[in-house]
Design a protein around this nucleic acid. Structure first.
Lengths: 341, 341
DNA sequence: GTGAAAGCGCTAACAA
DNA sequence: TTGTTAGCGCTTTCAC
């Protein structure tokens, strides 16, 4: 059923039917009712393509997720974030257009998205500390919101982020409070903003407590199980091995736990582990009462907010730039007393 | 730059330019070159909306991912699968339209996707044992491929799946070969096909070895860390507690490991754990040499194949139905010798 | 309050 | 080999 058929069926013009359905005020209320009923009965939905051709709006938002290498981990947080965004788009009649981009084609993907008029704006995922996409998107004039931050940007832009720096500072502080001094940070690639900020938090806590950082305890790589396993094996074999691990991802943590088991050590007895992932945070120490908190819902919340931000931007370009910093909810009951970050 | 401008610039008709760009054979090769160069220089890309309005093809595929509850885990396999599919779509000029659907609106989402002419076909994720979506999609005539299988379907349909039944049968057999009899299966919700098939594999292995299944060792629920933790704690507190866990997801495994640590047990010494996830599979037993294998790439492969299947279907509806069963690659070196499933 | 008509940017008969 | 013309299904002036 299309507009023409519907209007013929009703004995009205396409114009009137369109106006009735789109909430124009000049339509007679009785007519509107009649039209709405017929539309519902006929299960009429405007053809999206025709609509967007006529209005010049794509009615779609692009999410471009970069993948560095063929088999790299697609950021797992991403799924929840997107779920939130999707919810917002549904509410506003927008579609979500997903593109997985290998870094080499990335520029052409954004350009072609814009040139094809496929989307009205994009969400930028996995920002780098100094991300060339900002300049690119500004150049082609495509509205965007960054999920995360670009640390080294001189220009302003829309972003929404978890407070990674603060979360890791507090997690580190917790371990220090428990008496740990040899804390290994098993981090993501520090060209990525989130990992860089997490490391800063770690370092700040050490500085605040006038403790020295052991360089061998800092590591960063793509967040895979294998990385966690190999790094932890290596560190545990050291003469001066860490008494605690602060881990940037639960996938990595799986590997770390495997190495710890294999070394014959016991988490909570011989060693402490804190996992801090946007999706999942917990503290594991048998001296404590580990209280698990998932932050999953706040990632989804971030997706909702990012999408709203972007739609607002598209609606009213004057709002630029908007920003939001969300706190991570790492709730832990520990032997040092309840801890709330 | 649009077609009109480009053709005026070239002194040709829109038709010729369009034909040249779309590879029609009747175009003079010299003209085609000229057109292609001008198009590249002007960075011309056809407006997707106009194109799809004219052709009647949406040039987009929908991926509809169901989420049962607000904070349910979005299947993590999904990201890799989608990455594969996305790759295929890029190659064929299709877009990937993502929708996160709460089960209650699901029907209307499919209907509206079809009515709005937003997509030419859909990939169905997370199929149930008896999934009402098959009938729905057949009714509205939207081409589809199921990622997974609908066990109880009487009708034929396109699907691609990992061999869950076989993988879990073999994993169970491995544990049995190692001498385990008390094997807990910590599974996903068995209304979902994949979990149901995994359980069948588990049961088959028990039957083959004439072993009795302890009902208390079978559990199924949404795949969360908390579920793993609570279920394992409960089982480990039993008088007759399991000596091995066979786990359907690495997120759940995280919780199980937490419970095992807390119970003062050692994986590989007191207890064995096999995680079998489409994304990630490994066996953890210190008596063995645990050799880790990620099956991540085969999930991506499945995405590629599913997308190809769907595009073929759209191109030629006569091919219906197509199916593919992929084997899980669980490669393990164990004390019983190398094991290849 | 309603309708006629033009146009969004492309493709595809049909003509030449 | 190229061009003319008529749509695709909607929105939106402009006129009534």
């Amino acid at each position: 059923m299309n507009l023409k058929q519907l209007s013929e069926h009703l004995g009205l013009s396409q114009t009137t039917v369109s106006r009735a359905l789109n909430g124009y005020p000049e339509v007679n209320e009785t007519t509107r009712r009649r039209v709405e009923r017929a539309a519902a009965e006929g299960n009429y939905r405007p053809n999206l393509r025709a609509m967007s051709l006529a209005t010049g709006k794509a009615m779609a938002i692009g999410h471009v997720v970069p993948v560095a290498h063929k088999n790299d981990v697609v950021n797992p947080v991403f799924a929840e974030f997107v779920a939130g965004a999707s919810q917002t788009y549904n509410l506003h009649g927008y579609e979500l257009m997903l593109t997985i981009a290998e870094t080499k084609n990335e520029e052409s993907i954004y350009r072609s998205l814009a040139a094809k008029r496929a989307v009205d704006g994009v969400i930028v995922h996995s920002p780098l500390r100094d991300d060339p996409r900002l300049a690119l998107l500004n150049e082609i004039g495509l509205p965007f919101v960054v999920h995360g931050r670009v640390c080294d940007s001189k220009t302003e832009y829309n972003w929404i982020d978890m407070n990674n720096r603060r979360a890791f500072k507090q997690a580190t502080q917790l371990l220090i409070d428990l008496g740990h001094k040899k804390i290994a940070l098993v981090n993501g690639q520090e060209t990525l903003s989130f990992a860089w900020l997490r490391r800063q938090g770690y370092e700040e806590a050490f500085k605040d407590n006038q403790l020295e950082i052991e360089p061998a305890f800092l590591s960063s790589a793509a967040l895979t199980e294998t990385y966690g396993y190999e790094k932890a094996s290596e560190l545990l074999a050291l003469e001066k091995s860490p008494s605690a691990f602060l881990v940037s991802s639960y996938i990595v943590a799986l590997g770390i736990r495997r190495a710890i088991s294999q070394a014959g050590l016991n988490i909570g007895k011989d060693i402490s582990v804190i996992i801090h992932d946007d999706e999942l945070s917990y503290f594991d120490n048998s001296a404590a009462v580990p209280q698990f908190t998932s932050t999953r819902s706040s990632v989804r919340e971030a997706g909702i907010l990012a999408a709203e931000m972007l739609l607002k931007q598209i609606d009213d370009p004057g709002l630029y730039p908007q920003t939001q910093l969300l706190e991570s909810h790492l709730t832990i009951g520990s032997s040092t007393g309840p801890y709330k970050a």
